[in-house]
Computed example of a mutant assay.
Amino acid sequence: MPPLSFSASPSAASSPPSLASFSRDAVVSALRDAGCVFAEDEARLLLAAAGTPDELAALVARRVTGLPLELVLGWAEFSGLRIVVEPGVFVPRRRTEFLVEQALAHAPDASVVVDLCCGSGAVGAALAAALGPLELHSADIDPAAVRCARRNVAAFGGRAHTGDLFEALPGSLRGRVGILAANVPYVPSDEVELLPAEARDHEPRVALDGGPDGLDVLRRVAAEAPRWLAPGGCLLVETSERQAPTALEAFTRSGLSARLIVSEELFAHVVVGVEPAGTQAGLRAGD
């Protein structure tokens, strides 16, 4: 693709160049030629992010080579927040806002929240923003994700931990968690290569690949969750329509009262499992 060029306004010849001197249409055209479906919206965001024409040209050049818009900007909008995202970290999806909504609906008084497989920490940050002061822990196996999450949860007093699922968490959380949000990877291994290039080429495979049927990590989370949930606490996991029946079975097998909730608008499927009151004492005795 030839270098991005802009058309100066007639008054630009007698004054230093500014962003106002450059054509928004040129940005939109470059993005559209690169296949960006929402070129107009992206152009608006890139123009707002750039401080100089050179910065604008650099941002557009990065986008047209295929870098996800969120990584070009350095942030993603999620549940009304600007979530910092960095190269090599999973970018939060808009459909996952539905998981946040369901967590708030099922445990509006939660005082302890865990964001497992946290990626950028977006889910935990959104829950903390909505619920107010609480104890927030985010965890991921990927150190790059944890570094990014730490930046996003700091404003809410949250802590970010590195490790494999529950192994990353302080043992003092056992039996105390009101909301356990786990945005686990759920793409079957042989379908990862079919994902859009923005995910396939720029996000870590560990955040996408859920094993042969996509549910390996979900099963592990469901099996261990009752030991960490407070009585009446809930586990919430995003999955696909095809995988939902098997996911529900995994929740039920672990002793959780499970149901599937669907957003047709966002094409989002969230399995919610509630820890029955009175179960925890038996679990702790058997640990």
Rank of each mutant, 00 (worst) to 15 (best):
A129F: 00
L131G: 02
L131Q: 08
G132P: 06
P133F: 05
L134P: 00
L134Y: 01
S138M: 07
A139H: 03
D140I: 00
D142R: 03
D142G: 01
D142E: 13
A144D: 15
A145F: 08
V146T: 06
V146R: 10
C148W: 00
C148Y: 01
A149H: 05
N152E: 04
G157T: 01
G157V: 04
R159T: 13
R159C: 10
A160L: 04
A160G: 09
L165Y: 06
E167C: 11
A168C: 08
A168Y: 01
P170V: 14
S172W: 11
S172V: 15
L173Y: 12
R174C: 14
G178W: 13
I179C: 07
A181M: 05
A182S: 08
V184I: 05
V184M: 07
Y186N: 02
V187L: 11
P188V: 13
S189N: 07
S189C: 10
E191Y: 07
E191P: 01
V192H: 14
L194R: 15
A197L: 14
A197K: 10
A197R: 14
E198S: 15
R200M: 06
R200F: 11
R200A: 15
E203S: 08
L208N: 03
G210L: 10
G210C: 06
P212K: 01
D213W: 10
L215P: 00
L215K: 02
D216K: 03
V217G: 09
R219S: 12
R219P: 02
R219L: 02
V221Q: 03
E224N: 09
P226C: 00
W228E: 10
L229N: 08
C234L: 05
L235K: 04
E238M: 02
T239K: 00
T239A: 07
S240G: 06
S240P: 08
Q243G: 02
A244L: 09
L248P: 12
L248R: 06
A250T: 04
F251V: 01
F251H: 08
F251C: 11
S257F: 01
A258S: 06
R259V: 11
L260G: 06
I261Y: 07
